[in-house]
């Protein structure tokens, strides 16, 4: 399949999504055959290419392709330079992002907002379940969820959200002023302008000076744990 095809289909999909699936009511009733509908492509779909980091280098492309074919997410190994930014945690305390990330402890980062109904609850449940699956190992990791709707997600709302998830002390929920939150999204190449366009992205890092493993798409918790173990094994 050539690139033009991708682009055309991507645009059409975006358009159709924007129509809110009103189109589904287009042709009630007529069963015109469903041969192509026999496969569920949702998580393999090329729309996910929109989520690929554009400025980031992609190492390990072979693995990335393989992963994409077998699972619902794409994997890339990338390096990011983070500006010095001040965010706020769910207790209302200031957090310097560069300082938070300047650690030898492994990191797992995702981007959520508390009023998101579709993918964020699943991403948060995946973090929670991966932590349970890892048991004591999870305590070595700093889990970080950054709100992309900072003016609604006040520290109080994030704190309530964390409580619902039974989040432990090593799971940080961060908000901040709008400009800083946009800057941190741009630094991790996840900024989409409108929060309703956000895509599920998880970032893992084994330690200081290590590259990030970027997972675009939703992982199962077993996949997330597996990705982390692979990463930990490769760097120790």
């Amino acid at each position: 399949m050539n690139t033009t095809d991708h682009t055309t289909r991507l645009h059409l999909r975006t358009l159709l999504c924007a129509l809110g699936f009103g189109i589904a009511t287009l042709a009630h009733g007529a069963d015109m055959g469903h041969d192509h509908a026999m496969h569920d492509h949702s998580m393999h779909d090329h729309a996910m290419h929109a989520a690929a980091p554009q400025a980031a280098s992609m190492e390990n492309h072979e693995h990335h392709m393989q992963a994409m074919n077998q699972t619902g997410y794409q994997r890339a190994v990338v390096r990011y330079t983070l500006p010095s930014l001040q965010l706020t945690d769910s207790r209302g305390q200031p957090v310097d992002v560069a300082q938070l990330l300047d650690t030898d402890r492994p990191l797992a980062v995702n981007f959520i907002f508390t009023s998101c109904t579709t993918i964020c609850p699943i991403m948060s449940a995946t973090f929670a379940q991966a932590q349970r699956q890892m048991g004591v190992d999870a305590r070595d990791i700093q889990w970080i969820s950054i709100s992309i709707d900072p003016e609604y997600d006040t520290p109080e709302r994030l704190s309530a959200y964390a409580q619902q998830l039974d989040a432990g002390a090593n799971w940080h929920f961060l908000t901040g002023d709008l400009d800083s939150i946009i800057a941190v999204q741009k630094a991790f190449a996840v900024y989409r302008g409108d929060k309703m366009n956000h895509a599920p992205t998880t970032l893992l890092r084994a330690g200081r000076h290590q590259p990030w493993v970027r997972l675009d798409g939703l992982t199962s918790s077993a996949e997330l744990v597996q990705e982390y173990r692979q990463l930990a094994a490769a760097t120790h």
Binding site: A24, T25, G29, A37
Partner: peptide
């Protein structure tokens, strides 16, 4: 929508993603 057959060749010709699920009994 749910209890009606859904078919949409117009969409399906351009999309083999999730939207192709619209075609179903």
């Amino acid at each position: 929508t749910l209890f009606m057959a859904q078919s949409n060749n117009l969409v399906r010709n351009y999309s083999q993603g999730e939207l192709s699920n619209i075609s179903r009994p």
